[in-house]
Nucleic acid binder design. Structure first.
Ligand SMILES: [Mg+2]
Length: 999
DNA sequence: CAACTCATAAACACCC
DNA sequence: TGGGTGTTTATGAGTT
């Protein structure tokens, strides 16, 4: 059962799947997807990813956790490699355990939890759950240690670490040992898939890292930095962060120009000496010093990055801005930044235009303070707004055609004059006008061109791929907002005090203002930087979370996973949690790891996560840890839920079938009446059997609601085919084969799914393909196998299987001498992309390449996942709401319909299937289809899914409800760890809150 | 259309 | 004082 369920779960990924599916299992599949994608597309996207993922992510995170998170992420990546096995191990354990029933009791009390009811979140994947359940129990009982859960060694780090590779390997090997028959098992466990995936990821990561640099250079860097690029890049890349830092440190004082120059110098020899880094005054008190420290602080995070230069007003003024600036700007951005800034290709370079007012800023070296109305904190540098009007825009190095106060680099996504910050005397505050075509994000809200928004302290702004924050001088007291004048000496003093206090927040840079005001026209608020204050910097301030632009987000991670939060949480906890549970921050990290989408999307999902943890009974507080609780799964509850769901699903399926039958009968009758012709045909079918038959028949035609069966069926099919394809292992070890198969499966699923999504096709494209054009599917699989093989074997073996000629029946193929060495990906990769062709029919197809588009015919476009967030486009910022979709691109769907669904989805079985899998139940119908062999059955047995789909229901009952009544609090308290939990017990409850529920 | 499930956002209360 | 957490409420989209 378990195994089956898992596998099934995995499979479901397909977009069209209903929520249920989502809930059930898809998660793993997603992972697979993502990972597979990564693997597959090494090209730019990968690079981007890697770059973004690692670098950017690290730099991006804000929260305190961020640091941790970042670390964790990095760690994770590395860990992942090792970890991959873990999952497997876990799975293995699960397999070993196998008793579905055993699970029953958990230790925990189970239910209760604080507040809410479960309602919203119940979903979870039943199948998985059950297994999990088992696993845990077993693990806990038998071997706590072995449990995968341990993974998180230390809560603090939040690292998600997986361990126990050994187990995994063994298990895998065992699995592999089986022969073709046994091979099926290879697919059984999700774990395997995960494992494979993870491993793949690792590889990819490694590759990516390397490639990233190259890519960047080639792609971005080159363009941006024509001159220096090569040298600078190399040097930069290679140079340990420290070097950069050191230079930075030295830089402290220099003018912006200098600083830039320095960088250049550092990296490039070219820089004119004039720019030498010497630091004049830097003492501790000087702003430079502050900056310096700040950089240091920041620096560590971005390893490779070159530190940006800080600008001091006076210095700026003094030095000649132009030339230096230009040169500096040009060089830095690309090369240096490339490294540290993952995402950003171009680094923002701030140039201080010869600001008008600056004069105001006194040159006095001594004073550490910087006079400015406001400050723009970029990831790599800070721009002080010392004039009442500043233009923010794009400017490439050599472009002197226009003036830009804040140079955001060469990215074309940024207009030359993209935005301007100015002081509105009417409103008494600074405002930001968006001039650029692509608009900008202000506090995560998209602002279209032509709009002006007020800037308040700490307003987050993102233009193109560059995020930064508008910071007003501390003063405060009053409204932060700000008139420029606000800062007065008096305030300043106060500020100082604050500064001291505030220290922690680097961001703000507390700048105690100095007495001196620049005086000059608009009194410029000044910020003083003390070293003292600076020192605090211990933490580099939290940067506001970076807002990503679509371009920055790897394609694979732009769409929100279809899985429900409860499913994601379940998977996450299962995968990463130790027996003691996972802290919230760990969960966040795990989710990000599981679905990198969450690394890039705007915050907001965390709230949903918390909401789910609290409300869904499946998640319970296991033990207490510093701040909050460690969360775990209530396996029992989950199991029950699943059962209910299954039942419901079954019932629903039965009803559906009945209904369909009726319809069919009716129709048939009608037809008969009308036509009289084929009377028999289905009419008979009308009866149950017919139903089954019809269903089978329908696969092709009608649609059925749930997809559960289809998924299973599809999965089985895919597995079988893969097994067949890889009968000839060419000497590869079972493990390797398992990895390959896993990856190939993941790739196939991902690619096809993606392609379908792109096309706006709903439903399970794989099922459709299988039904309509198995040959094509085989081709895809073969290509995927080859691709996976190439990856896993590092290119040693590029073609494990030959690509079956179009015609061949599925079963037969198998390896042939290879024809083309194609690398694999080809077939797949293109698929994603999408869209171009639309092609004709799937059914026949004979071409080698797989065209997703073709699928469109079979599927109706439903909603799709939404793309991500940031994106440039649309107006409002947009939270994504669930499904919607935007895409739609193409085709449309609308039409397709008819044929579509039917085929794919039918699921009549879903429910039924759950049980028996192939056989019985619904499947009866099967008779027809399947052809397949026993193998399938075997597989299916293993696979069994669970899942369920639909269902609505309530159910309730079960359990407890905990109540709700007052609950909330609970005392908890005390105790520490262990479990505690409990609380209320059941009793019915109504609860109010919840909404749903019972009642 | 009603009942549900989920997702989102947020307000609050707590705790550190 | 502030941020992370956990609990609750609301609200709305999507499904069934
Ligand atoms: Mg809960």
């Amino acid at each position: 059962m378990e195994a089956a369920s898992d596998t099934l779960e995995n499979i479901p990924l397909i977009d069209g799947t209903s929520q249920e599916i989502r809930a059930n299992h898809s998660i793993p599949s997603d992972e697979i997807r993502d990972k597979s994608n990564e693997n597959n597309d090494k090209t730019e996207t990968d690079l981007k990813k890697t770059s973004l993922g690692q670098n950017s992510t690290a730099s991006l995170f804000n929260e305190t956790d961020n640091a941790i998170k970042q670390d964790s992420e990095n760690i994770i990546q590395t860990d992942v490699k090792t970890n991959t096995t873990e999952q497997d191990s876990a799975d293995d354990i699960g397999q070993k355990i196998q008793d579905p029933d055993s699970r029953k009791e958990d230790d925990n009390d189970g239910k209760d939890t604080i507040g809410g009811d479960e309602e919203q979140n119940d979903s979870l994947s039943s199948g998985n759950v059950s297994k999990l359940h088992n696993k845990k129990e077993i693990s806990t009982q038998d071997e706590p240690e072995q449990n995968i859960t341990k993974q998180l060694p230390e809560p603090d780090d939040s690292n998600l670490e997986l361990h126990d590779t050994n187990l995994e390997h063994d298990d895998f090997s065992k699995l592999l040992e089986f022969d073709s028959k046994d091979d099926h098992e290879i697919f059984n466990s999700k774990e395997i898939l995960e494992h494979a995936i993870s491993s793949v990821d690792e590889q990819n990561i490694a590759l990516n890292k390397e490639t990233d640099d190259l890519i960047r250079e080639t792609t971005e860097d080159i363009p941006s930095l024509p001159h220096f690029s090569s040298p600078s890049l190399s040097s930069i890349k290679e140079e340990p962060s420290e070097t950069n830092i050191s230079t930075k440190t030295k830089i402290k004082k220099e003018n912006i120009a200098h600083s830039e120059a320095e960088e250049n110098n550092v990296h490039n020899t070219e820089l004119p000496k004039t720019f030498e880094i010497t630091n004049p005054k830097i003492d501790e008190n000087t702003p430079a010093s502050i900056i310096f420290e700040k950089n240091n602080l920041l620096y560590p995070k971005r390893k490779n990055s070159l530190t940006p230069v800080m600008f001091q007003p006076h210095e700026l003024v003094s030095t000649n801005p132009n030339t230096t600036v230009n040169s500096a700007s040009s060089t830095r951005p690309t090369s240096g930044q490339g490294n540290w800034d993952p995402s950003n290709n171009q680094k923002p370079v701030a140039l201080k235009s010869p600001s008008i007012d600056q004069q105001s800023a006194f040159p006095t070296n001594e004073q550490p303070t910087i006079f400015a109305y406001a400050r723009l904190d970029f990831q790599s540098f800070t721009f002080y707004v010392q004039t009442l009007h500043a233009i923010i825009g794009r400017r490439s190095e050599n472009d002197f055609t226009h003036k830009v106060d804040v140079n955001l680099g060469p990215s074309k996504s940024i207009s030359r004059r993209h935005a301007q910050i100015f002081y509105n005397f009417g409103t008494g505050r600074f405002e930001l006008s968006i001039i650029g075509k692509n608009g900008a994000f202000v506090d995560d809200v998209f602002v279209e061109r032509g709009n002006t928004v007020p800037l308040k302290n700490k307003t987050k702004i993102q233009i193109g791929q560059i995020p930064f924050q508008f910071i007003l001088p501390e003063q405060e007291k009053g409204q932060s907002s700000a008139s420029p004048e606000t800062f007065e000496p008096a305030d300043i003093d106060i500020d100082d005090a604050h500064a001291m206090e505030n220290q922690s927040g680097d961001e703000d840079v507390k700048i105690p203002t100095l007495s001196k005001k620049a005086g000059k026209l608009p009194p410029i608020p000044k910020r003083k930087l003390d070293k003292s204050t600076v020192k605090k910097e211990k933490k580099p301030t939290k940067q506001p979370k970076k807002v990503y632009t679509i371009d920055e987000i790897p394609v694979e991670y732009r769409t929100k996973p279809t899985f429900s939060y409860s499913a994601i949480l379940t998977t996450c906890i299962r995968k990463y949690s130790s027996e003691k549970g996972m802290s919230l921050s760990e969960i966040y990290g795990g989710i990000r790891e599981l679905f990198p989408y969450y690394k890039y999307c705007p915050d907001g999902w965390q709230s949903s996560v918390r909401h789910n943890l609290s409300l869904n009974k499946s998640f319970r507080k296991v033990s207490k840890e510093g701040k909050g609780w460690l969360w775990g799964l209530d396996e029992d509850y989950i199991a029950e839920r699943e059962k209910q769901k299954k039942k419901q699903a079954e019932v629903a399926a039965a009803k559906a079938e009945a209904a369909q039958l009726r319809l069919e009968q009716q129709q048939s009758q009608k037809t008969k009446k009308s036509t009289t012709f084929n009377p028999s045909r289905k009419s008979n079918a009308g009866s149950n059997q017919s139903i089954s038959q019809t269903l089978a028949a329908n696969r092709a035609t009608t649609k059925k609601p749930s997809s559960g069966n289809d998924q299973q069926r599809t999965l089985k099919y895919l597995q079988e085919q893969l097994m067949i394809l890889t009968k000839d292992r060419k000497g590869l070890s079972k493990q390797v084969i398992a990895n390959i198969l896993t990856q190939a499966l993941a790739m196939t699923i991902n690619q096809v799914t993606q392609a379908a999504k792109n096309k706006g096709i709903s439903g399970n494209p794989l099922t459709a393909l299988m039904d309509k054009n198995p040959q094509h599917l085989n081709i895809i699989l073969a290509a995927a196998v080859n691709a996976a093989t190439a990856k896993i074997t590092n290119g040693q073996i590029k073609q494990l299987v030959s690509i079956p000629p179009p015609n061949q029946p599925v079963t037969t193929h198998i390896e042939r001498p290879n024809t083309s060495s194609s690398k694999v990906e080809t077939p797949l990769s293109p698929s994603h992309a999408d869209t171009q062709n639309g092609n004709p029919d799937l059914q026949k197809e004979e071409d080698g390449s797989f065209d997703p588009t073709s699928l469109s015919r079979f599927f109706q476009p439903r909603q799709q996942t939404k793309t991500t967030p940031p994106v440039i486009a649309p107006k409002p910022v947009v939270p994504h709401k669930r499904s919607h979709d935007e895409s739609n691109s193409g085709s449309s769907s609308g039409g397709d319909t008819s044929s579509g669904e039917g085929s794919s989805s039918s699921e009549s079985d879903s429910g039924s299937s759950s049980d028996s899998g192939s056989g019985s139940g619904s499947d009866s119908e099967t008779s027809s289809s399947e052809d397949s062999d026993e193998e399938r059955e075997i597989i299916t047995k293993k696979i069994r899914v669970d899942d369920n789909s639909s269902a609505q229901d309530n159910d309730d009952d079960d359990d407890d409800d905990e109540g709700s009544s007052g609950s909330g609090s609970e005392a908890e308290g005390s105790s520490g760890d262990d479990d505690d939990d409990d609380d209320e017990d059941d009793s019915s409850g109504s609860d109010g809150n919840d909404t749903t529920k019972d009642n």
